[in-house]
């Protein structure tokens, strides 16, 4: 079973999916991703201004899916052999989750530098979901 996400729900956060738009807190200067709700740093409400980060950052946590991927990812798993999933701390200080691309995920670990790129995340019901992945520098 996959974690089904409807297209309207996906669409509501396209800026975050396509360009990692984060919320910059007007109270404390901290960043929140996605850019909605309260500031994760100071809990301020309605204080987030959408900002585009540079898209560069450092891997802080990583895992590898080699089998048993959700059904929407089985084609990618067949084609690429393994899927790297990472938590990246962007240079602006905010942490965002994502998949690795253009690499053998076994070669990537904590502390490695990565850059955001836009790729096909998966295809479901005939609709391609594009979004950000991370490529090692």
């Amino acid at each position: 079973m996959g974690a089904y996400l409807s297209v309207p729900a996906w669409w509501r956060n396209l800026d975050g999916r396509y360009r990692l738009v984060v919320g910059e807190c007007q109270e404390c200067g901290g960043y929140t991703f996605p850019a909605e709700g309260a500031c994760v740093e100071c809990n301020a409400i309605d204080a987030l201004t959408p900002t585009e980060p540079e898209g560069t950052g450092t891997v802080v946590a990583q895992t590898i899916i080699e089998s048993g991927a959700p059904p929407e990812f089985t084609t990618l798993l067949d084609a690429e052999g393994a899927i790297g999933v990472v938590l990246v701390e962007l240079d602006e200080g905010v942490r965002v989750p994502g998949m690795l691309t253009d690499c053998d995920p076994h070669d990537i670990g904590r502390g490695d530098r990565v850059t955001a790129v836009v790729r096909r995340i998966y295809e479901q019901e005939g609709i391609t979901r594009y979004g950000t992945k991370f490529r090692p520098d």
Binding site: L76, E80, T101, D102, R120, I121, Y130, K133
Partner: peptide, 9 residues
């Protein structure tokens, strides 16, 4: 192209 690339990306 990688499996996650196409003309759009």
């Amino acid at each position: 192209p990688g499996a996650d690339e196409d003309a759009v990306t």
